[in-house]
Design a protein around this nucleic acid. Sequence first.
DNA 1: GTTGTCGGTTCATTATTCGAACCATTGGTT
DNA 2: AACCAATGGTTCGAATAATGAACCGACAAC
Lengths: 259, 259
Amino acid sequence: MGTVSKALSLLSLFNHGRLEIGLSDITRLSGMNKATVYRLMSELQAQGFVEQIGNDRAYRLGPEVLRLAALREATVPLLSVSQDILRYLCESTGETAHMSIVQGRQLNTLTHAYSPQHGTRVTMDDAEILSFHGTGSGLAFLSFAEDGFVDDILAGPLAVHTPQTQTDPQKLRAALAQARALGIAESIGGFEADVHSHAAPIFGPDQRPIGALAVAAPMSRMTVDLKSRIRRELKAAALDLTQRIGGFCPPDYPQEQAA
Amino acid sequence: MGTVSKALSLLSLFNHGRLEIGLSDITRLSGMNKATVYRLMSELQAQGFVEQIGNDRAYRLGPEVLRLAALREATVPLLSVSQDILRYLCESTGETAHMSIVQGRQLNTLTHAYSPQHGTRVTMDDAEILSFHGTGSGLAFLSFAEDGFVDDILAGPLAVHTPQTQTDPQKLRAALAQARALGIAESIGGFEADVHSHAAPIFGPDQRPIGALAVAAPMSRMTVDLKSRIRRELKAAALDLTQRIGGFCPPDYPQEQAA
DNA sequence: GTTGTCGGTTCATTATTCGAACCATTGGTT
DNA sequence: AACCAATGGTTCGAATAATGAACCGACAAC
């Protein structure tokens, strides 16, 4: 691994539960030498990718990433297009909708929208890390991902988030086969108790999945009626998003299926 | 300059006019060796900071920057808070509002909001690069920036954007002094002809300016009345933004001034 | 067929990174 | 007050990784 990759890998230590990290913590988390980490962080800091703040001198992500993200959006308007679509999706279903993409071996929520329709709703955070086996989004992605990736995920440790989390690789593979046939994946309470999520994959220019669009509802509200509405809307929304960012569905993606 | 900085500096070659760049172009633009650039870009690509697309194999920014930006927002909600404030600001003034921050020697627009009030309006792009001497935002920042930075900018070449662009360092310093006294800077047609922009600086936790909030209106609509409304609203909005991102105004910032 | 460009690759030279050990401060414990 | 265990930051010889001129095959223009 080159020096640049090492430096950039330090950035991926940041997540929702660790927005600010001290030098010693970074050293421990990365397994690198403290002097190395210090030099790398100094370079990242000089370029505005991280900044140091407060009296404990902890590092946090810097403003430069905002500029790059704005430019990325100008290139491929994934976020802005998604937000349009999510707004419509949560209105038409009355439930929380969100969009996630896969980066490396991680599934990250990027943006979400709430429906004002109900007092109770599933709440989300942006940049949250989702599990592949416990969420509709994760399963939707896996259902069209490369075999090697699926094997890798199913082989790895599968966290138990709730009593309902499915961790049996064989049963998960069965769920993936079903999702592949339908074009929609679902997870009932697999990540958070009481949340029923449906999701559909989003595809890139190379016909490979890049993430998923999902609708999450409290289990108590999930009727047959709502379920079929969610599936219909979700499918249309995911296809729309794929096309509007210049992507293409693979040939075996079930295009025609009215709920 | 270390290897990491070199790699990251390649990312800053991307801008609104150059969203996708080929290997040879990057080589030329950066002045580095082609083999070096290739290796650096490969590492950036492996980490998802850039991706290669199409048959010309040009590079463009990758999805990883979106994840980092979402986390940065979770740490310091500059964008989301700004968007709230901009929405109000453009409503209360009836004109286009935008927010920019300084990164290195560059002033970048990050987000904007349009008012639906008028048919004609000043249009903006996110991630646009503004000039320090030609825009209200640039002058607002400079008016509270460190002396060394101001000297550096005024010494450098000052682009002539329009016949109205002020490039005389002495007159610019006079404008800065006035802006410092008022807490508001303005530029009349200095960047784009026919655009009159007002701006107020935003400050970080260290009481140093990090960017500016601005309102841009067509010159033809700029009456004394509108001008005073813009100044009043802008001042309040900038102060609000500064406080809501955990920043502090410096002691010499003119707090009390009713338009 | 020649010439110029493109993205990508090779390999000996060389400059940069690495990491154990070391400082200076801070905050808590005895 | 003395001590200890943290913290962030620094040093310098040894080891490793970055460098860049030259090269390759592919494509396009002339």
